[in-house]
């Protein structure tokens, strides 16, 4: 199961999933509020914490009756995977994290890489792109199902989202603190970390590695926060090497 991070949707995985399509059942989804999900199903109360997104994951597992799930989570989804696996450990065979961070804001003795003011600035950035985002989202926002062609012509066919939901998700993502959840991870875990990543610096990857007992960490020779887009072969290779160390069960 491949889970996208904040700011995008399941399309992010399209360069990596083909490498696994033959040997595994691939499950791709958009969190409620992202991509092509049903925006009407989004409720601020349900998604006030990452737990609500973990419920999305578990509901999909339940609906498809999934077992032995290898949950590959990008960015914030790595922590969503941690929460989901803690709630229903029997579902999950392993966690694979791409650029995880349990907390983005610096704290005493912990470097997340950002200050609270930086996160406010991100929210401002989202606001100033409101018009751009809403243009991409126009048909969904305006509730104009009669003219689907309108949506196809618009600039950004990927990573669509409702701006208000995106802002909310950003807030939940970047102000959360899941450090105490890491020690509870009991399934085999792989951390894939880019050499240079502004969002999740190397030190944060190492923190996650130390905090999850028995976890494995691979540093990818890639720059940025999305190695599955910028270095898909390397990402797939690291993931496959990890999967080969697991007992032979596939999902």
């Amino acid at each position: 199961m491949f889970a996208h991070g904040f700011g995008c949707d399941q399309n992010m995985w399209r360069l990596v999933t083909p490498a696994f399509a033959e040997d595994y059942r691939i499950v791709l989804f958009d969190y409620v509020g992202a991509g092509r999900s049903d925006l009407d199903a989004w409720r601020p109360e349900r998604y006030a914490t990452l737990g609500g997104y973990a419920d999305d994951v578990l509901e999909i597992c339940d609906e498809l009756d999934l077992r032995d799930v290898v949950f590959v989570g990008h960015s914030v989804s790595a922590m969503i995977g941690v929460l989901a696996a803690a709630r229903e450990p029997s579902r999950f065979a392993a966690l694979a994290m791409v650029g995880p961070s349990p907390r983005y804001i610096d704290d005493d003795g912990y470097t997340g890489g950002f200050s609270a003011a930086d996160i406010d600035e991100l929210l401002d950035s989202l606001d100033s792109n409101y018009l751009g985002w809403s243009a991409a989202m126009a048909p969904a926002i305006m509730g104009n199902p009669d003219r689907p062609a309108l949506g196809e012509e618009l600039t950004n066919s990927f990573c669509r989202t409702d701006p208000a939901i995106a802002r909310h998700f950003a807030h939940v993502t970047f102000t959360g603190d899941n450090r105490s959840d890491l020690a509870g991870v009991t399934v085999p875990t792989l951390i894939m970390q880019c050499r240079e990543d502004l969002i999740a610096p190397l030190a944060v990857g190492e923190y996650v590695h130390r905090a999850i007992p028995g976890s494995e960490m691979v540093v990818l020779e890639a720059t940025g926060h999305c190695p599955h887009l910028s270095a898909p072969e390397q990402t797939a290779k690291a993931l496959r090497a990890f999967l080969e160390t697991l007992p032979a069960s596939r999902a």
């Binding site: 930086d118 996160i119 600035e121 991100l122 950035s125 502004l198 926060h225």
Partner: peptide, 11 residues
């Protein structure tokens, strides 16, 4: 800006 970097990298 730092906030802009976050936006850039994630979206």
């Amino acid at each position: 800006t730092v906030g802009g970097r976050l936006y850039h990298e994630t979206h």
